[in-house]
Amino acid sequence: MTTTTSLILRTGARVLMPLLLLFGVFLLLRGHNAPGGGFAGGLVVAAAYILHFFAFGLDAARRALLTRPERLIGSGLLLAVGSGILPALFGRPFLTSLWFDPARGIGTPMLFDLGVFLVVIGVVLIMTFTLAEE
């Protein structure tokens, strides 16, 4: 998009981006028994990268993501399906919750949420980056 952006925006983005990333992960981890979860957390993390794109441009945002959004979608779907197949390997029905530590919410639902989280980040960023390229 724009090659030169304002100093205020760049400084603000530098401060806000870690906050948004942290809050997105917080929403993901807390989503087990409170509002939040993979979808909301993924949207917040995607918003962090969109902010980075506004401030520093498309290439910088792609570099900050470290991987391609397509790979995020793929690995997210793999994680979500894997969390469903895992209990089937133990002779339980597909997508049965297996708990490692139920009190803290650590188990296959966490894996599923992580998959949703990655898919949402990937989908939103693909849409944004594609729109930005035009």
């Binding site: 925006l9 806000l16 906050l19 948004l20 809050f23 929403l27 409170a34 509002p35 939040g36 909301a40 917040v44 918003a47 969109i50 902010l51 506004f54």
Partner: peptide, 18 residues
């Protein structure tokens, strides 16, 4: 928990303006 929604909107609302 409503406060978290407020945090999200406060962090994200300006993106559209930018």
């Amino acid at each position: 928990v409503f406060l978290d929604a407020a945090i999200v909107i406060a962090l994200v609302a300006f993106l559209g303006t930018i």
